[in-house]
């Protein structure tokens, strides 16, 4: 039998990363401030978690200027969605 714990993704152990993936999996895109407000975290904290997810190739970053203010938006990648769904199935199967 396959060990269900192996399905859990180490990169999603942090609540913040899990939160970011949750938001992006149901929204086409989200900007930095929206994520910050939804997850109730500080700038620095969110930035570091987002960067690590980006490094994994789980999300796509788009930087632009709106009315001369920098605005960063995020989208989930195919790879990220797959990883997140696998992680959710693993969590569910652990609880059965």
């Amino acid at each position: 039998m396959k060990n269900p714990i192996r399905g859990l993704n180490k990169h999603f152990e942090s609540r913040v990363r899990l939160g970011v993936m949750s938001v992006l999996s149901v929204n086409e895109q989200a900007d930095f401030n929206t994520l910050k407000e939804l997850l109730e975290v500080t700038d620095g904290n969110l930035a570091s978690h987002v960067r690590s997810l980006e490094n994994q190739g789980y999300l796509e970053v788009n930087k632009q200027f709106i009315a001369r203010k920098p605005n960063t938006t995020y989208r989930i990648t195919k790879k990220g969605r797959k990883a997140f769904e696998d992680h959710l199935s693993a969590l569910e199967s652990l609880l059965k």
Partner: peptide, 21 residues
């Protein structure tokens, strides 16, 4: 650990709802 997983799942569901509704 199983309680932590349950909390994780609950939180995921809440965040999904809060961010779309």
């Amino acid at each position: 650990t199983s309680r932590k997983h349950l909390e994780d799942l609950n939180e995921i569901r809440q965040i999904m709802e809060r961010s779309t509704k």
